[in-house]
């Protein structure tokens, strides 16, 4: 008799859909946060901060689902790893959304009429990070470590851009000491993007763990 555990497979598919939804919401929050930063749009920034609660709630929902599935289905091997990484990916996505919220807070601190134009390097970092979210989704969906490896390369690009940007901002603080408070908010924002990309890279590591059954460090 062929046994496929259809009900369990269906539950796993639903769980995956939930994670994709959370990933999309997080990505949207992040894109909006970057737009708000460049446009000095305080209202939009407020909205992002307010809506972060929904993301936290979704994280709790997914974790509860996973806990129930572990208790009821008693998964082993790949199924167990699939559920363990669901919790870890969800945590990463929630932290990524927190970084979107942090950028929104930086926008608030800068205010509507600050004297700086936002450095284009921030947008460049963010663009790579956005692409990384899509690659991570593919890696998770297809359980494909080729995509996971790609995340490591893209994270290196973000890190390099971050280094360059910080050096430039440091120089600016020396030349424009009266603008330090604004430059700091910009540096913080760059740091949040860099951390955002690290969490996406973690998702790549989680896909590695799912496929290979052992841990990998792609954030080195």
């Amino acid at each position: 008799m062929m046994v496929t555990r259809e009900h369990f497979s269906e539950e796993l598919a639903n769980l995956k859909a939930d994670i994709f939804e959370l990933a999309e919401t997080t990505k949207q929050a992040f894109m909006t946060a970057i737009d708000a930063l460049y446009a000095s749009d305080i209202k939009k920034a407020e909205q992002i901060i307010k809506e972060d609660v929904k993301i936290d709630k979704k994280e709790d929902e997914i974790n509860d689902k996973v806990m129930i599935l572990i208790a009821k289905q008693q998964p082993v091997a790949t199924d167990l790893r699939r559920l363990i990484i669901a919790i870890k990916i969800t945590t990463d996505l929630e932290r990524m959304a927190d970084h979107a919220k942090n950028i929104a807070k930086a926008t608030q601190h800068l205010g509507e009429k600050h004297p700086l134009s936002i450095h284009p390097g921030i947008r460049e970092m963010a663009d790579v990070a956005f692409d990384m979210v899509d690659i991570a989704k593919k890696a998770f969906d297809l359980e494909d470590i080729t995509f996971a490896n790609k995340l490591s390369e893209m994270d290196d690009i973000v890190d390099r851009k971050y280094g360059e940007l910080i050096r430039e901002l440091l120089e600016s603080t020396a030349n424009n000491p009266d603008q330090i408070q604004y430059l700091m908010q910009m540096a913080y924002s760059a740091r949040y993007i860099e951390r955002f990309a690290d969490h996406i890279t973690n998702i790549g590591e989680e896909v590695f763990f799912l496929v290979k059954g052992r841990s990998y460090d792609l954030n080195e």
């Binding site: 046994v3 082993v76 091997a77 790949t78 199924d79």
Partner: peptide, 10 residues
């Protein structure tokens, strides 16, 4: 083995 312990086998 994976199929059997995961409850999926034919």
């Amino acid at each position: 083995t994976e199929d059997y312990i995961s409850g999926r086998f034919g």
